[in-house]
């Protein structure tokens, strides 16, 4: 299946991992079961280099300009942005709630830190999500092992640094198990 593998172009700067962009939008009429979640989420493209990342990202609408109940997901290639994925099952996520108006800038800084390998937690990072909601927006970053406190603390501290979060920003860690309940 390597035929379709995305790889860096000549002269481009490779990323440590390939990443896939996904988009989902909740249609109000459907229940939010995991089946309808899977139906509502679409892969929109995979990037393997810094240059491919920018070409792709620059064509996307900014999260702050989205309306309604929508999410962008950027996950390592091969990992679905779902709790049920093998890589996410034992994992969790850091959540940051943002007042309206901040999502575009914070999302960009968070995914730049991710694709640039700023978190220094080995293979732990799975992906990142920005969730656009009516009253607020939510950023989250998912990792594989929810009970590894060294890892989760390091992710939290890196997020604080790269997003330049005020020290009173509330960050919440949720295991995917909690979310499933």
């Amino acid at each position: 299946n390597n035929r379709h593998k995305v790889s860096p172009g000549a002269g481009e700067h490779p990323l440590q991992y390939n990443y896939t962009f996904w988009f989902s939008r909740r249609t109000p009429s459907r229940p939010s079961s995991s089946q309808s979640y899977e139906q509502n989420i679409r892969q929109i493209g995979t990037v393997a280099s810094v240059e491919q990342f920018w070409r792709f990202y620059s064509h996307l609408i900014r999260p702050g300009d989205l309306s309604g109940h929508s999410d962008f997901h950027l996950f390592k290639e091969g990992i679905k942005p779902m709790w049920e994925d093998e890589c996410n099952r034992g994992g969790g996520k850091w959540i940051i709630r943002l007042r309206k108006g901040l999502a575009s800038r914070f999302w960009e800084n968070m995914i730049l830190a991710m694709v640039g390998e700023q978190f220094m937690v080995g293979e732990e990072i799975c992906g990142a999500v920005v969730s656009v909601r009516f009253q607020e927006d939510i950023l989250s970053i998912w990792n594989r092992t929810s009970n590894d406190q060294t890892t989760t603390s390091r992710i939290r501290d890196t997020l604080r640094r790269v997003l330049n979060l005020p020290s009173n920003t509330i960050m919440e860690y949720k295991t995917h198990n909690d979310s499933l309940r």
Binding site: G9, G11, E12, H13, P14, L15, Q16, V50, E51, F53, W54, R55, S58, N109, L112, A113, V115, G116, E117, Q118, V162
Partner: peptide, 21 residues
Amino acid sequence: GTRIIYDRKFLLECRSSPVAK
């Protein structure tokens, strides 16, 4: 193995470099 690490400044510079366009 070696990790490929880029800081934000470098990534933003790549955005405006000719190969990215």
